[in-house]
Amino acid sequence: MENEPSSDNRDSNEQDIRRRLHERPRNASSGDIDTQPTFLRSRSDSSKTNLRDKTDELADSVFEVPTKCVEQAKEVGKRVVEYVVDHALLPHWLVDNEFLLSGHRPPMPSVKQCFASIFRLHTETVNIWTHLLGTLFFICITVYYITQPANEVHIERKIVFCAFFLGAIICLLFSTLYHTLSCHSPQFAYIFNKLDYCGISVLIISSFIPWIYYAFYCEFGTKIAYLSVTTILGTGCIIVSMWDKFASPAYRPYRALLFIAFGLFGFIPTMHYGLLFGFRHAFTTGAAQWLALMAVLYITGASLYAARIPERLAPGYFDIWFQSHQIFHVFVVAAACVHYYGICILSRHQDSIGDCHASVISPSSSVLTSFFR
C-alpha cells in the first residue's frame, strides 16, 4: 500500500520529464527563431548607420569644395586689394576711365615692379596680355617667312609681307609697353602713350602696303599714288598724336574718330579696284570681303573704346574683365589676323598674272562692263 503513492509519483515525474523533453526542442527552436530576426535587425541597423555616415561624409566633402574655393578667392582678393587702389586714390596722370572704380595699380617708380605687375590682377592685366601674345604671334610668323627658302617664298613676297608684320609688331609691342609702364611715372606715361598712338598709325600704314601692292600689281602709277597718300595721312596722324592734349581723356572720342577716318581711307582704293577689275573679282580673288571684315572689327572696337561700353552702363562691374579697352585690344589682334589671311589670298593672284603687259586692261573697257564682270 505504501508503494502505490510512490508509483504514482514516479508516473507523474516521468510525465513531467517527457513533457519537458518534448517542449525543450520547441523552446530551443523558438528561441532560435526569436533571436534570428533580432540579429538581422541589428545588422540592418548597423548597415543603415554606416550608409548614413558615408552619406554625411560625402555631403561634407561636396560642400567643402565651394567653401575652399571661397576661401581661396578671399585669399586672392586680399592680395589684389593690398596691391591695387580705387579710382579716387589715383594721381591725376593715371586717371583715364572714371567708370573703372577699383582694381587700379598705384604709382610704381620701379621698372622691375611694373613688369612684375604683368602677373598680377588689375585693370591693365588683360590689356597687357592680349597685345603681348599678339606681338609674340607676329614675331613667330615673321621668323617663319624670313627663314623660308627663296624657291618657296620669293624675296619680293617676304619684303611685302614683312612690312605688314613689322607694323603689327610695332603697334602691339608699343601698346604692351605702354600698359605695362604707364604706372611708373608721369614721364613714362607720357612717352609710351605717344608711342602707343604712333604704333596704331604705323599698323594702318603697314596694312595698306601689301593690299595695295597686290591689288594694283600691274598698275604701277596707281600703286605708288595710293601708297604715297597713305604714308602722308599716316604721318599726319603721328604728328597729331604728339600733341599733348590728344592724349587726355577728354580727347578719347577724337582719337578714335581720327584713326577710324584714316582706316576708312581704304574704302577708296577698294572701290577703285572693284571698278577696275569688277566687284565679283574683288570679292573673290581680290579678297575684299576680308578687308571689309577687318574694317568692321577695327571700327567696332574703336567705337566701343570711344563710348566706354560696357563699363559706362554698369560702373564697377567691368573693372578687371570685359572693359571696352580690352575688347578693343582683342578686336585689333583679330583684325590683324584677318588682314593677314586676306593678303595671303590676294597674293596668290600675283602668281597667275604672269606678264603684266599681257594683262593690261583695254582702254575701251567701260566702268559698267568692269562693274558686272
Rank of each mutant, 00 (worst) to 15 (best):
Ser359Arg: 15
Glu57Ile: 06
Ala282Cys: 08
Pro210Phe: 11
Arg26Ile: 09
Asn151Met: 00
Lys194Val: 14
Ala163His: 11
Val360Ser: 15
Leu58Val: 03
Leu166Glu: 10
Glu57Cys: 04
Met1Ala: 12
Met108Val: 10
Ser207Cys: 10
Val95Ala: 13
Asn27Gln: 14
Arg157Trp: 11
His122Asp: 00
Tyr145Arg: 11
His87Pro: 04
Glu4Gln: 09
Ser324Val: 12
Thr35Lys: 10
Phe283Gly: 07
Tyr341Glu: 13
Arg255Ile: 10
Ile212Tyr: 01
Ser6Gln: 02
Gly103His: 06
Cys171Ser: 07
Ala250Leu: 13
Thr49Asn: 15
Ser366Gln: 11
Trp93Ile: 08
Cys218Lys: 14
Ala28Trp: 11
His104Tyr: 14
Lys194Ser: 06
Cys140His: 04
Asp196Ile: 07
Ile343Leu: 03
Val333Gln: 05
Leu313Tyr: 08
Phe137Gly: 00
Leu136Tyr: 11
Ile327Tyr: 08
Gly354Pro: 08
Trp243Glu: 02
Asp355Pro: 14
Ile260Pro: 12
Leu297Gly: 05
Arg105Ile: 10
Arg348Trp: 09
Ala88Gln: 05
Pro25Asp: 12
Cys218Val: 14
Gln326His: 09
Gln15Met: 04
Gln72Gly: 07
Val111Pro: 08
Asp351Arg: 03
Ala73Tyr: 10
Ile224Thr: 15
Ala28Pro: 07
Gly274Pro: 10
Leu136Ala: 06
Tyr214Lys: 03
Ser228Phe: 14
Leu181Asn: 02
Pro249Ser: 09
Gly266Phe: 12
Tyr298Gln: 00
Leu177Trp: 10
Ala168Gln: 06
Val80Tyr: 01
Gln148His: 09
Leu40Val: 15
Thr176His: 02
Phe164Pro: 07
Pro186Asp: 01
Gly301Ala: 14
Met271Ala: 11
Ile320Pro: 10
Val70Ile: 01
Glu152His: 11
Phe262Lys: 12
Pro210Gly: 02
Ile118Ser: 07
Val333Glu: 07
Ile268Leu: 07
Leu313Lys: 09
Ser110Cys: 09
Gly199Ala: 09
Trp129Tyr: 13
Leu276Gly: 07
Ser47Glu: 15
Arg308Asn: 07
Val360Tyr: 14
Gln15Asp: 01
Ala168Met: 03
Asp56Met: 04
Asn3Pro: 10
Thr142His: 09
Cys171His: 08
Ser248Thr: 14
Cys356Val: 12
Pro109Ser: 01
Ala358Gly: 12
Pro5Thr: 00
Trp321Ala: 03
Ala314Met: 06
Arg52Leu: 06
Gly301Arg: 03
Gln148Val: 00
Tyr254Ala: 01
Glu82Ala: 05
Asp319Gln: 02
Val240Arg: 05
Arg24Cys: 01
Ala334Ile: 09
Thr222Phe: 14
His179Asp: 03
Pro106Ser: 04
His184Tyr: 11
Gly134Arg: 08
Glu64Ile: 07
Glu14Thr: 00
His339Ser: 05
Gly134Asn: 08
Phe259Gly: 05
Arg19Thr: 06
Leu276Val: 08
